[in-house]
């Protein structure tokens, strides 16, 4: 589904990704773990199309498409979703209005009719209930004054409603207490399906106790350094990045 080959990315002239290769297959959950500054978030942002990153080499294919040639909204239309580490607050844009606008933009791009109002309401309420998002939060402006946990739940709500093929979770566990972490993880697990792939980016192993990955990649210095099964995450938990990768790469 997603094939990254030798991806090289710089920010303000400084190389961050230095030849990263990765293949993600449908139906699988891939975890990317790495120390601070390893380039994890850069990878997430480049895949979603955020400005300010210069791709200096390599390529990324998403299905049949050259992902890097697409605008951010076209990537969303193609089925890519990034649950952000720091969801922005947008005062003046009601959460409900935003959700409907996003769903319809994606349906329209896929040649579907707009979602009927009743169906929209039913879906939103159902997913919101599962994620413990109250009616009041849906009526508020998008993320405005939301707590850290509420923002992350709201990201998962969007993910559930937009029905992407590839879900990228960027440090979704940061700032979550254990209950919120469980709710968010349950939300993600409900979405697991044979057609859908996940790229779970995290610093800590904790999240992976709840979202059990099929494949674990250890990233450092702008590259994937090691790849293995879930046991690799546990090994990391015991030995630390330094023990696993050596002092130089873990810095």
């Amino acid at each position: 589904m997603l094939t990254i080959e030798n991806l090289q990315v710089s920010v303000e002239g400084k190389p961050i990704l230095k030849g990263l290769s990765l293949t993600v297959e449908a139906g699988r959950v891939h975890a990317i773990m790495g120390p601070n500054g390893s380039g994890k978030s850069t990878l997430a942002h480049v895949l979603a199309g955020r400005e300010g990153y210069e791709v200096t080499g390599g390529n990324v294919r998403f299905g049949d498409e050259d992902l890097l040639a697409l605008e951010p909204e076209e990537r969303a239309h193609a089925g890519l979703f990034l649950a952000m580490q720091y969801p922005v607050e947008i005062p003046g844009v009601a959460n409900m209005y935003f959700l409907r606008q996003a769903i319809n933009a994606i349906r329209k791009a896929r040649g579907q009719e707009e979602i009927p109002a009743a169906e929209f309401m039913r879906k939103v309420r159902e997913q919101a209930r599962l994620l413990g998002i109250g009616e009041e939060l849906l009526k508020r402006d998008l993320n405005a004054g939301f707590s850290g946990g509420e923002k992350k739940r709201n990201e998962i709500l969007q993910m559930a409603l937009l029905e992407p093929r590839l879900c990228i979770l960027d440090e979704t566990d940061s700032g979550l207490d254990i209950d919120a972490l469980r709710t968010v993880a349950d939300g993600v697990n409900r979405l697991r399906s044979p057609e859908r792939a996940f790229l779970v980016i995290t610093h800590y192993q904790r999240l992976l106790d709840y979202i059990v990955p099929d494949v674990v990649h250890i990233m450092a210095d702008g590259r994937i350094q090691r790849t293995g099964g879930p046991e690799l995450a546990r090994e990391l938990e015991e030995r630390g990045y330094e023990g696993l990768l050596g002092t130089k790469l873990a810095a």
């Binding site: 979603a48 199309g49 955020r50 400005e51 605008e71 951010p72 909204e73 990537r75 969303a76 239309h77 979703f81 990034l82 952000m84 969801p87 922005v88 947008i90 935003f98 606008q101 996003a102 933009a105 994606i106 791009a109 969007q158 937009l162």
Partner: peptide
């Protein structure tokens, strides 16, 4: 970017 990443042109 946030809005565009959700499919909004």
């Amino acid at each position: 970017f946030y809005l565009r990443s959700r499919g909004i042109a």
